[in-house]
Amino acid sequence: MLLYIVGSLIAGIVLGYLLQRGKRRVDLSRVTFGVIMLLIFSLGFSIGSNDDLLGSLSRVGAAAVMIMLLAVGFSVVFVKAAGRLVRLD
């Protein structure tokens, strides 16, 4: 899967670079929106059709929310602090 991921990114970048040299205007925001919706739909579908996941969410949901929120909160604070430290614009 990693190979496909990197492959499609690179293929897109090369094509985009060629289009830029050909001075074409590219607006893909509508296509992007449509495909993002497809992706979100399939994410929802995987959740709804996965009984193990639904079960684990109802059993350990509250603890999971707490761990997740603190993990995310500290990540954001650390990235902000590190960004200032090494001057990431």
């Binding site: 496909y4 499609s8 293929a11 897109g12 985009g16 893909l28 992007t32 399939s42 579908f45």
Partner: peptide
């Protein structure tokens, strides 16, 4: 849906993101 549609739309999206980037 949870495998083929998901992977397919993800790869297509990454391809489009690549274009926007390039």
């Amino acid at each position: 849906v949870s495998d083929y549609l998901s992977s397919g739309s993800l790869l297509l999206l990454l391809f489009i993101m690549g274009i926007t980037f390039g």
